[in-house]
Amino acid sequence: MHVPDGFLDAPTSVATGVVAAAAVAVSLRGARRELDDRTAPMAGLVATFVFAAQMINFPVGAGTSGHLMGGALAAVLAGPWTAVLCLSVVLLVQALLMADGGITALGTNITLIGIVTVVVGWGVFVLLRRVLPARTSLVAPAAAVGALVSVPVAALVFTGLFAVGGTAPVDLGAVATAMLGWHTVIGIGEAVVTGLVVASVVASRPDMVHGARPLLAERELETRAVAAS
């Protein structure tokens, strides 16, 4: 969903730029709570993997394709504040080095792919973690559902931005319908990739998964309680 330069007018691009800058500034503070000597290298690898995975466009039918956005994945693996920074670095490198996503559209892309997908993906994940049984085996499915929801929501937010600042006079209803429809399908791919990657990390190193740590801590306490009794 990398937005190129020109789709949105200057005021809208400036506004999303301000939103993105503010989110990055807040996340730089918030991420301090998630990053230490142990988790910082993992967070770097998460950002690197998201960059790599975004190169893989999968076909979704009718001559169109989609790729992982990675907001939910990064949030569950590295924590939500760190995830905003992960995606921001990915989008910066893509815009500067690969000419993928516009330069004046960088704020828009950070807003859509770096903030919306992280907030929605992490929000849904935390909600599910609260209502589901406290098992690490449910971390990956919960992450997948967060990923599934995050993509169409980002598509709707783009449509909203386009309604405010789109430069071409086109039927907004048609844009909204098409964006939502295709990105619901792309969301399924997002869910599959997110679920598989989180499941394999949970299987090999559950302690590396930010979203699994509260469950591990609980298990640890239970183990100690049983051992002490």
Binding site: M1, G63, A168
Partner: peptide, 16 residues
């Protein structure tokens, strides 16, 4: 990887 346009590009083309 698929070389088809991504969702946004495709929608942009379809809706003009």
């Amino acid at each position: 990887a698929s070389s088809h346009p991504d969702g946004l590009e495709y929608v942009a083309e379809q809706t003009g």
